[in-house]
């Protein structure tokens, strides 16, 4: 696999370095649970996330982006590969940590969830929810904790006087703010955002995205941002990685990817972005067909059955990870020559 350590970005080492990560889920059958195959949810992914930056992960549902995030958080054990995490001065090899050590690393990485309803315990007050990570890490219920919870709530734009309320008193957007406050409580280095706005009203989405950007600027946060909405990605991400059936298809700076996509799958995704203009004709090249079964992917390039540029070689040979320009990688045989259309 081509090394993709970027040159232009920063001299510093990345906060999160994923190398050749694989996560296969066994398919079991029958009474004895015999393993008859594997779902390759994440298949040989390498990715680096730098401090203070936002790395976007985009793909259709079932492409493995959430599985990848769960591997980073070690909610799953890896099948293969290495994850290096460098909060502060330490360096942790997440793939090697045992449960006990893992509990010490976890405060450095937190998560913002997709569903603002299942992410807050309905039986706890906002105060309890936001202070829980602190209390789990040694804080006691005292004035200092009260003050910290107030600060956190104010930082995410909530009225601290509402901290004795229960989640049922809040709207989806407000609940998501509570979830963000909880994720911030421990001053984490990395926050994994798993589709944090896809369950919200469009009018609220922008507010939450702006809040995330502001917080990033203030607190020098690093986001691993999962989304299927490219407009959201464009709004908030510095870099984007496009996933398809567990593999990375393309990786580039956000502007680059939108202006000059180097993979037919990315082009198809970009063309599918709805444009709120009734006079504009509908996009002509939508994506047809279904995502292949990750337990039984097609030979050659995984995307070839749906690709409008597919040639004979695409059905036989898996494409290499090509660097078409500095900082721009694509997994396509014709990454350099295809005339692909971007979007602004």
């Amino acid at each position: 696999m081509t090394n993709e350590r970027p040159s232009g970005h920063e001299q510093q080492k990345p906060l999160l370095e994923i190398t050749n990560l694989k996560k296969y889920f066994p398919i079991e059958k029958g009474l004895l649970r015999r393993v008859v195959g594997y779902v390759r949810a994440v298949d040989d992914v390498s990715l680096s996330v730098y401090r203070g930056k936002t790395m976007g992960l985009v793909g259709e549902s079932g492409s493995g982006k959430t599985t990848l995030a769960h591997c980073v958080l070690r909610a799953y054990d890896l099948t293969e590969g290495e994850i290096i995490f460098r909060p502060g001065d330490q360096e942790y090899r997440l793939n090697e940590l045992e449960a006990k050590e893992l509990r010490q690393v976890r405060p450095h990485m937190q998560m913002i969830f997709q569903d603002p309803y299942s992410s807050l315990d309905p039986r706890k007050t906002v105060y309890d929810i936001v202070s829980e990570p602190l209390r789990l890490n040694g804080a006691t219920r005292d004035a200092a904790l009260d003050q910290r919870v107030r600060d956190l709530l104010e930082a995410v734009g909530l009225d601290y006087r509402h901290m004795k309320r229960y989640p049922h008193a809040f709207s989806g957007g407000q609940r998501q703010r509570v979830g963000i406050a909880r994720a911030l409580a421990l001053n984490p280095a990395l926050i994994v955002c798993d589709e944090p706005v896809s369950a919200l009203d469009v009018s609220v989405q922008a507010q939450i995205l702006n809040l995330l950007s502001d917080l990033q600027a203030q607190l020098n946060l690093t986001y691993l941002f999962i989304a299927h909405n490219l407009r959201v990605i464009q709004h908030i991400c510095d870099d984007v990685a496009v996933m398809y059936v567990g593999k990375l298809m393309e990786r580039a700076r956000t502007d680059d990817l939108f202006r000059n996509p180097r993979h037919p799958y990315t082009e198809a995704l970009l063309s599918a972005i709805p444009i709120p203009d009734p006079d504009r004709p509908l996009p002509e090249q939508g994506l047809e067909g279904e995502l292949p079964d990750p337990a039984n992917p097609p030979p050659g390039c995984y995307f070839h059955p749906r690709c409008r540029y597919a040639q004979a070689i695409c059905q036989v040979e898996a494409p290499p990870w090509l660097e078409t320009e500095p900082q721009h990688f694509s997994r396509c045989h014709f990454a350099r020559e295809l005339p692909l259309q971007g979007s602004i």
């Binding site: 909610a75 976890r106 998560m111 969830f113 569903d115 992410s119 890490n137 979830g179």
Partner: peptide, 10 residues
């Protein structure tokens, strides 16, 4: 997710 969040907080 709130159970997961608590787990992630240690």
């Amino acid at each position: 997710d709130y159970v997961k969040a608590a787990q992630l907080a240690g």
